[in-house]
Amino acid sequence: MTYAVKQDLVDRFGATELIQLTDRTNMPPSTIDNVVVGRALADADGVVDGYIGKQYKLPLSVVPPVLVKIAADLARYYLHGEAADKDSIVSRNFASAIAWLKDVSKGLVLIEEQGEPPEQAGGGAIKTSAPNRVFTRDTLRGY
């Protein structure tokens, strides 16, 4: 399932940033490389699916706007790669997105407009067996 698309990245971060991050053939950079953007978006989708798949049945029937933002922040971080400064807004947004996804996977945060939750495992009755008691009221009578 795709949570964010190239246009979401352009709308949120601007075409200039995407051109600078993705155009590896032209000097100076002049176009957005769709392959590079697609790879970053696919990586982001995989991370999102990995976390929310623990609580929700995938694919979701409707993609909530919050997941578009989360996927866009993850993809932006992947596009920056090793050039992302630890204290930059890109790194902070990435860390925030991962923390939010962890909360979703633990069930602390619910996704609105989500698909149906997966069926829980098990559901059967618990059976136990033990030997008969040796010491009962009747066997200890008279002591």
Rank of each mutant, 00 (worst) to 15 (best):
F13S: 00
G14N: 12
T16C: 08
E17W: 09
E17K: 11
E17A: 13
T22K: 03
R24A: 13
R24M: 08
T25G: 08
T25N: 09
T25A: 10
N26A: 15
N26Q: 14
P28R: 11
P28A: 05
S30C: 12
T31W: 11
V35S: 15
A42V: 06
D43C: 03
D45N: 11
Y51V: 09
K54W: 09
Q55A: 14
P59N: 09
P59K: 12
V62M: 01
V62R: 02
V63A: 03
P64G: 07
D73R: 13
L74N: 01
A75P: 05
H80I: 03
A83H: 08
D87A: 14
S88E: 10
N93V: 00
A99R: 06
A99V: 04
L101E: 12
K102G: 15
D103A: 13
V104N: 08
V104Y: 10
S105W: 04
L108D: 15
V109C: 04
E113P: 01
G115D: 03
P117E: 12
G122I: 04
G123H: 11
G123N: 15
G123V: 10
A125V: 05
K127D: 10
S129P: 00
A130I: 04
P131C: 09
N132M: 13
N132E: 13
D138C: 02
L140Y: 01
R141P: 00
Y143A: 08
